[in-house]
């Protein structure tokens, strides 16, 4: 855990000194935009009501709450992925990957350190988004605190798990933008962040279930919109946790190969 703590501290110092405010606005922007568009559609087009069809497919008639929780979760996912999955390719670009790999430190605590800093930062950004939503008039019901805490924890595991194989792909390919944006498109489409995943064709729904973020999203919505107690979400919690751990294990398995490929590219160039 020494490595995790040291990496958390290092990243925190770097972030304090070089936090790009334009990036923060760029991060908050899509979330706020999603909520504003939903708000306008709901008030101006829907007249403050949603169809029975939406209620049946989403399990709630609180359209604004549904969109706000989804937008917040999507922002959390993208921010965590950007920090964790890009950690090693950033090291590579800044010329520090070799000095990292020379040390006897394990990859898991290193990535956990990055993820811990990313988690704190993302939660602070999330608070800004939810504060903005509140100012816009969105009101969320009182959540079940235990289910919400468990939901946030498994969402962390889900995104952390997804980020590790993504990190391996990025450093092996020496490219980040196409990889990360492909993932964002896939999770945005399949995981039910902004619309009920059941509306997708069956094969896509099945693919969505293979991503741990889908179950995490269900847990977060159940905890925040329905104040569901933990025993009601235990199934989704378990599947999210299992899938997140599976992705993390696969990622940790392929990461050393990807690292060597990145070094080989550097050495043979």
């Amino acid at each position: 855990m020494v490595t995790a703590w040291a990496t958390l501290k290092r990243n925190w110092l770097v972030m304090q000194r070089a936090y790009p405010w334009s990036y923060f606005i760029g991060t908050l922007g899509p979330g706020v935009f999603t909520i504003v568009v939903a708000l306008l559609s709901y008030r101006a087009i829907g007249g403050g009501r949603v169809s029975a069809w939406f209620g049946a497919s989403s399990g709630t008639s609180d359209y604004l709450g549904y969109v706000t929780v989804g937008a917040a979760a999507l922002m959390f996912t993208t921010r965590m992925v950007l920090w964790v999955a890009k950690a090693q390719i950033t090291e590579q670009r800044e010329g520090t990957l070799v000095s990292q790999l020379l040390t006897p430190a394990m990859r898991l605590p290193y990535l956990l350190g990055v993820a811990a800093q990313a988690f704190i930062t993302s939660i602070l950004e999330l608070c800004c988004l939810l504060g903005t939503a509140l100012l816009l008039g969105v009101r969320l019901p009182t959540p079940d605190p235990v289910s919400l805490a468990a939901g946030i924890l498994v969402a962390f595991v889900a995104v952390f798990g997804l980020s590790i194989p993504l990190s391996a792909i990025m450093i092996a390919a020496g490219e980040a933008h196409i990889t990360q944006n492909t993932l964002f498109c896939v999770v945005g489409l399949l995981c039910g962040f902004t619309f009920p995943a059941v509306l997708l064709p069956a094969p896509l729904t099945f693919l969505g279930e293979l991503l741990p973020a889908t179950a995490a999203m269900r847990v977060l919505r159940a905890a925040t919109l329905h104040a569901a107690p933990i025993h009601q979400v235990i199934g989704d919690l378990s599947s999210c946790l299992a899938l997140g751990c599976l992705y993390a294990a696969i990622g940790l398995l392929v990461l050393p190969h990807a690292e060597r490929r990145a070094i080989t590219r550097g050495a043979s160039a």
Binding site: R10, V14, R17, A18, G95, S99
Partner: peptide
Amino acid sequence: ERMVYARLTARE
């Protein structure tokens, strides 16, 4: 090769 973090001090 750089091998050190530009945004940290030498001590850090």
